Amino acid sequence: MQKKELHISSLIVQMRAHKATPIKKSINALSGAEVITISPEGKAIVVLEAPHQRQIMEIIDSINALDGVLNTGLVYHEFETIES
């Protein structure tokens, strides 16, 4: 049997509020990323799902590189081993 991993993380992404719409679209376009909500002040809750921790870090780096993103903070990270 082959073992695979599933990594799930949640983030708080602080952004310039006037750029929230294009940032949300860019984050949602990333594989395994979903914006759950954005406050009027520009704080977003984002959930990530990936098969490797390295991919979670790559998604976070991509989010940090978006124009208007000020800060990204990891709130939660868990992984499960899945037997297939």
Rank of each mutant, 00 (worst) to 15 (best):
M1R: 00
K3S: 04
K4M: 05
E5C: 07
E5N: 06
L6Q: 08
L6N: 03
L6W: 01
H7I: 07
I8M: 02
I8W: 01
I8D: 01
S9T: 15
S9F: 02
S10V: 13
I12D: 07
I12R: 04
Q14D: 07
Q14A: 13
Q14K: 08
M15E: 07
M15I: 15
M15H: 05
M15C: 06
R16N: 12
A17N: 02
K19D: 15
K19V: 15
K19C: 15
A20I: 14
T21N: 07
T21E: 09
K25L: 13
K25G: 15
S26D: 15
S26V: 10
I27G: 14
I27S: 14
N28W: 03
L30I: 11
L30A: 02
A33D: 14
V35H: 13
I36E: 15
I36A: 10
I38S: 13
E41N: 06
E41M: 10
E41Q: 10
K43D: 05
K43Y: 05
L48D: 12
E49L: 03
E49Y: 03
H52E: 12
R54P: 00
R54G: 10
R54S: 13
Q55W: 04
E58Q: 08
I59Y: 06
I60A: 07
D61I: 02
S62W: 05
N64L: 12
N64H: 10
L66N: 11
L66H: 00
G68Q: 04
G68S: 03
G68Y: 10
N71H: 11
T72A: 14
T72V: 15
G73D: 12
V75E: 06
V75L: 06
Y76L: 10
E78L: 12
E78Q: 07
F79Y: 08
F79V: 01
T81P: 00
I82C: 00
E83W: 00
E83M: 06
S84V: 10
S84H: 09
